[in-house]
Design a protein around this nucleic acid. Sequence first.
DNA 1: AACCGAGCTAGAGGCCGGTC
DNA 2: GACCGGCCTCTAGCTCGGTT
Length: 298
Amino acid sequence: MSNFGRLDLNLLVTLDVLLMELNVTRAAERLSLSQPSVSAHLAKLRAFFDDPLLLPGPRGMRPTARAEALREPLRQALEVLEHTVSPISPFEAASANITWRVAASDYGESTVLLPALARLRQAAPNSRFGSVGTGTNQDCPAGGDGGGSIWPFTLRTAHHQGCVNACYSRRSMCWWGRIGHPALTARPTLAQFSQLEHVVVSPNGGGFSGITDHTLEQVGLSRRVVLSVPHFLFVKSVIGKTDLVAMLPERLVRDSPEVQIAEPPVEIPGYELAMLWDERSHRDPAHQWLRELIAQSV
DNA sequence: AACCGAGCTAGAGGCCGGTC
DNA sequence: GACCGGCCTCTAGCTCGGTT
């Protein structure tokens, strides 16, 4: 149809009802239009199809052969359209068969995803769950195979423009070193603390400063960061087997037998545990369901 | 603000089938 | 055949909302 682009698709709805009712007045009532309006629609349809479509007959109208040929394909096409534009149905986790992908650091995996995993498996047994690392320069994930993506424990950066951010927990930082580390029992001054050899976690790779360094900068000091690693769990091994010390999330190492905690000579502000997700996934029912589950599990 | 299109009400007229 | 009722079509004048 060469002039299809100029066709008012509402006219097809009118035609569909006309072919069901075979009566302009009843079609108008069904469409909540006036009878002259439906009559005008019919006139436009006749002009478009270059066919009378409906002819006056005994007790109503009779469809032409062209109209009869249109009836079923039109009905099917409108059903597809109606389904396409109808409101999104609520997410049914029990029967859903989708794949979620979540970007998280190893700390996020152990403290956020692990507690959520059992509930996730129970509530959505037919769905899959993929944990992907927080690599360098990654933008907000755009959504998985019909599921979605979430970034727990990620600091908002320029790469996360267009993401929705929800903080669901505040965490504190503690000073950690190996069992028997002399510095941790000597209650060092701030200057002595700064001279110790530190290890930092840089999930994006290669960074040598963090919240602690920003705090020290404000009092005119800087610490010796001699090791930067991308994974939190590796730091546990490092500080348990060397004289390096680290400022780490309290929950990460509190059950580790090789390390001990000490009060740092300076108060380090805590951090927000947050989820980030693509704005396009914000209203997706499956995505909303997973976000809610993770938030409840933390 | 002017214009345009869609839709409304109200009214007139034509066509058709049923009834007397 | 005349009359009546139901239905369709068209026109006029109006409102309303969107566009220019």
